[in-house]
C-alpha cells in the first residue's frame, strides 16, 4: 500500500493565506523543502491533517522575497533559516533570524546552483 498525497502549485503571494487556512483546519506543518532549479527555487510546504498529507509548491525566481510563516507556525522558522542559509532564499520578517549562523558553515549558500 502506498500513501497518496496532494501537490498543488500556488503563487508565492498566496502562501500566507494557505498557511492560515491550514492552521484553521488544525493541520500541522510537516516540512518546508527548498530545491534549487535553474533561475530560482522550488519551495514545497507540506502539511498534515490527521493522515492527510497536503503539499503546496511555490516556484520563485532568485530575487523574489517570500514572507515568513513563522508567526502562523512557529516551527517554520527553522526551515526558513535553513533555506536562507543553504540556498539563499530571501525570507522576510522571521521572528528568529540566525543570520546565516544556523549551520555555521563557511561557504555562502552552498546548495544554490
Amino acid at each position: 500500500m502506498r500513501e497518496e498525497y496532494e501537490l498543488t502549485v500556488i503563487d508565492s503571494s498566496e502562501l500566507s493565506g494557505y498557511a492560515l487556512k491550514m492552521k484553521r483546519d488544525n493541520a500541522r506543518l510537516v516540512q518546508i523543502c527548498a530545491v534549487s532549479v535553474p533561475g530560482g527555487y522550488e519551495l514545497s510546504y507540506s502539511f498534515a491533517k490527521g493522515y492527510e498529507f497536503i503539499n503546496y509548491r511555490i516556484v520563485i525566481d532568485e530575487d523574489t522575497r517570500i514572507a515568513s510563516i513563522g508567526d502562523i507556525y512557529p516551527s517554520a522558522v527553522f526551515y526558513e533559516n535553513e533555506m536562507k542559509e543553504l540556498f539563499g532564499v530571501k525570507v522576510d520578517s522571521m521572528y528568529l533570524d540566525y543570520n546565516n549562523k544556523l549551520y555555521r558553515i563557511e561557504q555562502e549558500t552552498p546548495f544554490k546552483k
Binding site: 510537516v30 516540512q31 523543502c33 530545491v35 514545497s44 507540506s46 516551527s75
Partner: peptide, 27 residues
C-alpha cells in the same frame, strides 16, 4: 521523518532531502 527525492533522469539526483524528527521537535 520525511524523505523528498527529485530526479532528473540521470544517475545523479537533483535533490535528496531528509527532514528528521528532531528538527521539527526543536520548536
Amino acid at each position: 521523518a520525511i524523505y523528498y527525492v527529485k530526479a532528473n533522469g540521470t544517475k545523479n539526483l537533483d535533490r535528496a532531502r531528509v527532514r528528521t524528527p528532531t528538527f521539527t521537535n526543536l520548536t
